[in-house]
Design a protein around this nucleic acid. Sequence first.
DNA 1: ATGAAAGCGCTAACAT
DNA 2: ATGTTAGCGCTTTCAT
Lengths: 346, 346
Amino acid sequence: MSPNIKIIAEKAGVSTATVSRVINNFPGVREKTRKKVLKIISELNYEVDGIARSLRQKKTFKIGVIVENILSQFYSILAKSIEDVAHKYGYNVILCNADDDPEKELNYLKVLKTSRVDGIIIAPTGKNADYINSLLQSNIKIVLVDRLIEGVECDAILVDNEKGSYNAVKYLIDNGYRKIALINGFTDRTTGKERLNGYIRALKENNIPINNDFIKIRDFKKRSGIILTEELLKNKEKPEAIFAANLDLTLGALLSIKNFGLKIPDDIAVIGFDDTDWEQILEPPLTVVRQPIYDLGSSSAEMLIKNIEEDNKFKKDNLIITLNTKLIERNSVKKLSTISGQINNN
Amino acid sequence: MSPNIKIIAEKAGVSTATVSRVINNFPGVREKTRKKVLKIISELNYEVDGIARSLRQKKTFKIGVIVENILSQFYSILAKSIEDVAHKYGYNVILCNADDDPEKELNYLKVLKTSRVDGIIIAPTGKNADYINSLLQSNIKIVLVDRLIEGVECDAILVDNEKGSYNAVKYLIDNGYRKIALINGFTDRTTGKERLNGYIRALKENNIPINNDFIKIRDFKKRSGIILTEELLKNKEKPEAIFAANLDLTLGALLSIKNFGLKIPDDIAVIGFDDTDWEQILEPPLTVVRQPIYDLGSSSAEMLIKNIEEDNKFKKDNLIITLNTKLIERNSVKKLSTISGQINNN
DNA sequence: ATGAAAGCGCTAACAT
DNA sequence: ATGTTAGCGCTTTCAT
């Protein structure tokens, strides 16, 4: 159907090598010849077959991106920022939603390998260390984003979750809160673990005993936010504040609090993780830990493409960059005197 | 680096043809031979080179998806639903954000052509009819989603925007509203045009004169929602209700209304387009026109893959499917007596 | 049941 | 400045 380089060569009365030189803007073609070839190319609407080119050059200009679920705003921002950078450098993105499922993740890794992508950016489940190491060995460039994998040494770009979490809890403490609950994802993910650690450090540094009834852990999904918050609100001892460790958990917490007919911040204070447009128009606007998601994605893409283009096979030391979060103060936390805290006790 | 079929063949003492038969589960290989080959494959961690296979078979198992911007929830749901279906059939998705920019769209179409994708799903700007027709002619399967293109005959899956819009405005009228404003995207997009048409039909059928001061048009972005709503609220004659024709416009409208210190629905009623988790936890929860976005995407992917796999070159009549919206009643519209409507006049 | 060999469309080394 | 040709890794037709 579509013409190929051979057809163009024939019609232009030159060899395929010359056509190739023209296509690729290589030097060593007389201007007249170049013009002639370009004319035929345009007449026949010739377009390069990228598959043949990739086979020959061992380069696809594709990068694979594996995220948990693009429906979550965190990942859609990540995907967009990666795609922006990729596009800038002439790469395309193959998008994979692994649903936080190690098997699906492995499957996608294999597909990407077979697709001969030039590199992979992955927010990993943490479970496929062996296969990822084998990819690394076969010289596929990989950048981990947001989470690390035990047993894998490779470039990564992370967020300082521990400090972000610490700052949020510290802020609550500074505002007079003592009974602070955490709803969090599983701690076998580095994000979950670090956010828990920050919570604990803030309490310990302020001599507030850790109350296990206030630490609720399940997956990082909205449904868990609903369930865990319900549990907290049904507790004999109710928390004065809830810190929700990601966007979906925050959403779930807000849903539950609304169902219980509680007012924020008078009945309960809330700090969320991640910031979106919606959180500002909530009533009250939500105080949140903002992650630099766009930077996370764009940096990972820059890093990956740099790796790909340098193709430094002897690069030994891997680069791990950690970005900072920022606490955005809005109105879901009020100043609480320690005394009112005591009165609230039941 | 990675072993190829030739290496496997040598080590197994067979020909490459036999290895290929094994890889592809073709019949006509003795069980003993198959076992031997599989053993070598597994020992050497051989994985098929999809690029070479694609070149030979003229099939990539890739589909291109061009959306406006994955950051918008509408498109992230669309992308996810497409990816889900694609994955089910063994296809991968190459994701492209064209930013509603015809040039970027054209560029991506060319990239996808060069990448030899098996098909393309596109929410089109409407501007690249010629190139899209040329793709169709070179037998690349295409499905349009959400919008049509003038001068292109091809499968499409749409939403009944006119009726969705009509229903929203009719609902406002039934609740006693007369001064109903529309903030809408440009009407050179079919979505924009149809949503305007539904608005107009609802007013006309109820003998409410069209007031051009109440019809505000700009692009479909949040910033436009803010600006257009500001304009409306600064009008000498203020609307009693605002119907925002997509999610980002709704978000912008809410932001503006909040800035003006107005209460919904007492000071002004609002109906949004598109439904997300957030709209339920707003105060008040928002009444919206819900589009079946997931179905839109999954149907388009099913349609595309069916086209690809049938490869019916003589398929003449294109299929256009239109899905219905649903009005989700929540609390951002109150019952208004006609009299109070008059009093509000200034 | 298995192998030999052509060829998908391109690039790149080498020759002229 | 241009051409010849090998070959990327696979599938597939035709032999045997």
